[in-house]
Amino acid sequence: MVKGSPRPKAANKRWTPRARRDAWVFLALALPNLVLIAFFTYRPLFVNMYYSTLDWTLGSMDATVVGLGNYIEFFTSGDAPAVLGATAIFTAATVGGSMVLGLLVAVALNQKVPGRTIARSAVFAPYVLSGVGVGMVWLFIFDPVYGALAWMLRGVGLASPQWINNPNLALAMVIIVYVWKNLGYCAVVYLAGLQSMPRDVLEAAALDGAGALRRFWFISFPLLSPTTFFLLITTLLSSLQAFDIIKIMAPTGNGTGTLIFESYLQAFGAYNRAGYSAAISVVLFVLLLVMTGLQLRFVERKVHYA
């Protein structure tokens, strides 16, 4: 993080004519963007809290205040274990999967072999592609009858599982595709970390007879901890917001009802339960807040900064 602005501050002569003019310039330049952020990013957080206290059908004119009723329903009905469970599994599997595979790919990319820049671009590409398009392509590959995966499985004498109808397999399917789409991001960030690694330390260890595996595990990996920490936070936050792939591949939310998707289904799916949807959104937001807080308080201190 860059330490405060280096420009001189007009601390005690704050409202001289010059300062006043500067303040107007500042507002003219920054206000449109700040108003938009305040109105469409911050305001909804509070509006959601209000909506979450209502029993309200989307599109209807009347709503009754139910206080914490929506939250009580969420946590006492079967919804909470199912939704929080799906969220936990999806998040843990996608964060773990894309980081571990991303690190492996980064190590492979870190070798001096011709063609590695092309491989690097190729691996990163899915990260920038439309989740809807990508989800559609994989849905075809996973098709139990005509899909490429079913064809390969038949080749080795296996029958394709019913990926879409089985809730557990549907969750596994969206996890696989999400990891496929995002591991390139982890790989490129890890690669940047590997390439900024101090060479002398690794060479010293090599001279002392440490093998490649030992060098990686006892030197490179600990030195990568700031990168690992950064990736953990960014992938965790984006996994909790994953929507496109789930919506296109498992539109009914059967087994794939994570917090974000369940919130969408409740309001804009079959039920039109705006209040209940808002309550789930608030739960998601609190979860994000707690994790960001934990990150700032605890994890950052344990990280080794090279």
């Binding site: 405060g4 469409f40 911050y42 909506y51 969408y264 309001a267 937001f285």
Partner: peptide
């Protein structure tokens, strides 16, 4: 120059963390 620049920048940083999906219904 502007008096509350630090606070404004902090608010922008926090906005980076807020998922747009949470704001969809309002």
């Amino acid at each position: 120059n502007f008096p509350f620049k630090k606070a404004i920048f902090l608010a922008i940083l926090v906005a980076l963390m807020v998922p747009p999906q949470v704001s969809v219904l309002p």
